[in-house]
Simulated scan of single mutants.
Amino acid sequence: MTPRDAADDNGSRWSDLDRPPLNAAALRRAVVREDGLYRDIQVVRRTGSTNSDLVALADRGDADEGAVLVAEEQTAGRGRLDRRWSAPPRSGLFFSVLLKPAEVPVARWGWLPLLTGVAVATGLSRAAGVDTALKWPNDLLVTVDGEERKTGGILAERAGEGGVVVGVGINVSLRAGELPVPQAGSLVLAGARGTDRDPLLRAVLRSLEDWYGRWRAAAGDPVASGLQDTYAAGCATLGRTVRAELPGDRSLVGEAVALDGDGRLVIATKDGVQEPVGAGDIVHLRPA
C-alpha cells in the first residue's frame, strides 16, 4: 500500500474548517464489533485509489474480510471504463471494503455492485435526508435544481483468493464551482440536512453490513434476499428510454423494462426484442 499519510500540500489538515477530518477511532468504535462484518477501519490522508490499495493487500494475503480503507483524498480514483474520479480533500467519502462471500455461488457475485448501491442509497437517505436514486449499474443520482445529477459511483474488483473489493466514491460537500463537470452533483447541493462525514460513513457501512448479511444468508438469491425488488424500486433507469453503449462499438436503444435474475438490464427495442445487457455505458435519453 502506498497511501500518503502526511500533511496536505498546504501543511494542515484543518485548512478547511467546513471539512474536518474523519475520526478513525470513533468510526472503529461505532462499526467494528466482534460478531460483525468489519474487522478494521483505516483512514489515510491521501492515496491514489483505495480500491487499488485494498486489492493489493488482499492479493498479498494481508487483509481479511471486512477490512475497510478510507481516504480523505483520492488522486487517482477509478470508476467504470477506467474513468478518473477526483475531488478536493475531505469533500467526499472515498472508501473500499473487502468482501469474501464464500457461501454465495460465484455466478451471483455480479449482484455485489447493485447491492452496494442499494446499501449506500439507503444509508444516505437515513443519515442525510437526501433521496438518492440508482442509475444502472453503479451510479448514485441526486436532484439538484430539478435536474438529475451524478453524486457517486461504485466499482467492484476481484481480489485475492475468493474476495471482492467494492469501492465507493460520494461527493458530499462539493460546491458548484468545485464540480468536475456541470452534470455532477453533491449531497450539499441536493439539500442534505448535514454534511458531517462521520455519521454519513457510519450509516452507509451499517447499511452495507445489513444488506450483505441478508444476501449472503440467502446464498446470493436476489429474490429471497429482497435485493432485486429493492434495487428495481430505487432504480431511475427502469422505465426510461436509454441508449446502451456496448462492447464492440455496438449500441442499443430502447426502454429499460426490468432487471433479470443475474442483475442485467433488460432493454426492449422498438422491434419488440428484449435484450439483457450485462455490461455497457447507459445514457438516459429522456427524463423520468
Rank of each mutant, 00 (worst) to 15 (best):
I170E: 02
L179V: 13
L205W: 02
L141S: 01
G160H: 04
V165K: 05
G167K: 11
Y231H: 13
A156P: 08
I154W: 03
L205K: 01
S251D: 14
E245A: 13
G177T: 07
R240E: 04
L208P: 07
Q228W: 11
D139A: 05
L140V: 01
A184R: 07
S225H: 04
R202P: 12
R206E: 15
A176F: 11
A244S: 04
G160Y: 02
G163C: 14
V168N: 09
A258D: 15
V253S: 11
A232M: 13
T195L: 10
W211Y: 03
V204L: 14
T241D: 08
V257I: 15
Q183W: 11
L227K: 02
V166D: 06
L200A: 07
A258K: 06
A219I: 00
P180A: 05
V223A: 06
L141M: 13
R197C: 08
G254M: 06
A244I: 03
D145H: 14
E255T: 15
A218V: 02
E245L: 15
Y212D: 05
L200N: 11
V168A: 09
G162S: 09
G153P: 15
S186P: 14
N171P: 15
A219W: 06
R243M: 14
K150C: 13
L208R: 00
R202Y: 02
V253F: 10
L189E: 03
C235N: 11
G226H: 02
C235H: 10
D249F: 15
T151S: 11
I154E: 08
R197T: 08
G220R: 00
W136A: 08
S225Y: 01
G239Q: 09
Q228M: 15
